[in-house]
Design a protein around this nucleic acid. Sequence first.
DNA 1: CTACAACTTAGAGTGTGCTCTAAGTCAAGT
DNA 2: ACTTGACTTAGAGCACACTCTAAGTTGTAG
Lengths: 132, 132
Amino acid sequence: MLNDQELFTISQVAEITGLSVHTLRYYERIGLIRPIDRAGNTHRRYSSDDIGWVEFLLKLRATGMAIQNMKTYAELQRAGEETLEERVEMLKTLQFDVKAHIHELNEHLELIRHKIEFYSAVIAGQKQETSA
Amino acid sequence: MLNDQELFTISQVAEITGLSVHTLRYYERIGLIRPIDRAGNTHRRYSSDDIGWVEFLLKLRATGMAIQNMKTYAELQRAGEETLEERVEMLKTLQFDVKAHIHELNEHLELIRHKIEFYSAVIAGQKQETSA
DNA sequence: CTACAACTTAGAGTGTGCTCTAAGTCAAGT
DNA sequence: ACTTGACTTAGAGCACACTCTAAGTTGTAG
């Protein structure tokens, strides 16, 4: 697949990922993204793999993982296969935390549902009074 | 229940709710909590109702609701029964958002599960090689 | 060759949600 | 009356995750 060798400018990657060019450079600066290859030694050229990595980061971010934590993961990833076990440990911790978070959200959803029901009944009662 | 008339100092409320005394004052200052009654005109005395309200705020916060939004809700609450419909609308929006968030988290959980499985298989393969 | 849009860096600024400090007041025990 | 510890306010400071600015360089179309 020749298409996989296609390279992208920073603004194309911004378009594709939904991050701003500022944020892409920021992520690289703090080490969330590996130093991106340059065309003519200054302008960044992102590979499809780079974009895939950014999209994975976005998913980690969406789980609530802190940037420091993502950075640790990124460093392990770059260190190669020797760090696989450590990465699996991190993923298991994340899995545990996300499950707990979902559980908590479901509980709060229950409370919200109850409140909506209760208040709706009160409103119905108010309307009854008014029309009586 | 006479016990319901019991009053609490700010540090007791901090203990009960898990918020710091700083945060409790901060929440009052920005209008998330109504101006708490004072004993001898300076020291705050919280009622059980006040504590209940703080605990509800913590649940809203845990759903990811922004403070500005919580403040709006708090103001509607204080305005009385006339705002019930507006509050139900806010709760329905929150319900929708939380459901969407849970859905997203579940998707990411799937990805995490896949990665754990895949990496674990690779690790198992590595160990096989070493022992062979 | 020139115009001009897109890129570059270092570093400053912003919004959110706390968190702490300084300086002082109050309440309870001895 | 005095000490001690909990309380008070106004306002400064902090961590996080961006977001923007200034000043300059590069690449492409006419």
